[in-house]
């Protein structure tokens, strides 16, 4: 889980770093904007993360957990429904097999670049 009390010290810290991908930065931005607009708080983000269970912390990356939590909080606060989300995800998925194809906005950015 997120909070770690009784875990024995782990292996050496892996100091490799990666630049954040555009989709990760967007998740971050959605979190900041949605909370600034009052749809949920950082505690709501945290609560949904904790509810995911230990396995999520083994299998999902940081921003994967975040988008799951952001989405859940937005549904709970009535921003959109599960049904709307499902339909939109299907539409996105149908656009192609890469992020560049599926995200219309980034296609535009590339054309402008």
């Amino acid at each position: 889980m997120g909070g770690l009390i009784d875990v024995m010290p782990g292996p050496p810290v892996d100091r490799d770093e990666h630049d954040y991908a555009l989709w990760e930065k967007r998740v971050d931005a959605l979190m900041v904007l949605a909370s600034a607009k009052g749809y949920f708080t950082v505690d709501g983000l945290r609560r949904a993360l904790e509810d995911m269970g230990e396995e999520s912390f083994e299998t999902m990356t940081y921003y994967e957990r975040w988008i799951a939590s952001v989405t859940q909080n937005l549904i709970e606060s009535g921003a959109f429904t599960i049904e709307e989300l499902r339909a939109q995800m299907e539409q996105v998925q149908a656009r192609g097999d890469t992020y560049g194809e599926a995200s219309l906005d980034s296609g535009k950015e590339q054309a402008d670049a």
């Binding site: 989709w23 988008i67 989405t71 709307e84 989300l85 194809e101 995200s103």
Partner: peptide, 15 residues
């Protein structure tokens, strides 16, 4: 494309 990326795109578009 991953499931979670699809979710990010969909959520952004819905907002």
């Amino acid at each position: 494309l991953t499931h979670w990326q699809v979710m990010e795109i969909a959520v952004r578009e819905l907002l």
